[in-house]
């Protein structure tokens, strides 16, 4: 540690990984992990999301999971909720789509409308 700046940089990098414990209103990505979701490949989606977020150094996003959303035929479902923004539900997500969601939605702020079912 050669300077305070260096410490600041390290802190910022590390904070991304610790935000999960803050209980702060982050952007929340929820993957439905009911039996249906898992059967449809939700696990692969989670892994892909995490890998892509890491690759792109995405901060302020927590990944959480939920049970069956009652839309079993649309599984795997991924819900993205930006604080203050609308809740967007992507359907039939797979690994590639998950990576795309990270890039477009989380990084660039663009909703990929064609993969969503829009909710209120």
């Amino acid at each position: 540690m050669k300077s305070l700046d260096e410490l600041d940089k390290l802190r910022e990098k590390l904070q991304a990984e610790m935000r999960i414990r803050e209980g702060q209103p982050d952007t929340r990505v929820t993957v439905a992990m009911g039996t249906c979701g898992i059967a449809a490949g939700a696990r692969e989606v989670v892994t892909a999301l995490l890998e892509e977020m890491k690759k792109r150094n995405v901060k302020g996003v927590t990944i959480t999971q939920t049970g069956c959303a009652g839309l079993c035929h649309y599984e795997p479902l991924v819900e993205v909720e930006v604080p203050g923004g609308e809740r967007v539900t992507y359907v039939h997500v797979d690994g590639d789509k998950a990576r795309e969601i990270v890039l477009e939605h989380l990084v660039n702020g663009q909703i990929i409308k064609e993969w969503t079912i829009l909710k209120k």
Partner: peptide
């Protein structure tokens, strides 16, 4: 120590010294 740093650890020392 990384988790400590992530929660502003050693910031105070850094600030004091600098």
């Amino acid at each position: 120590v990384e988790e400590y740093i992530a929660r502003n650890g050693y910031q105070a020392l850094g600030r004091v010294l600098s």
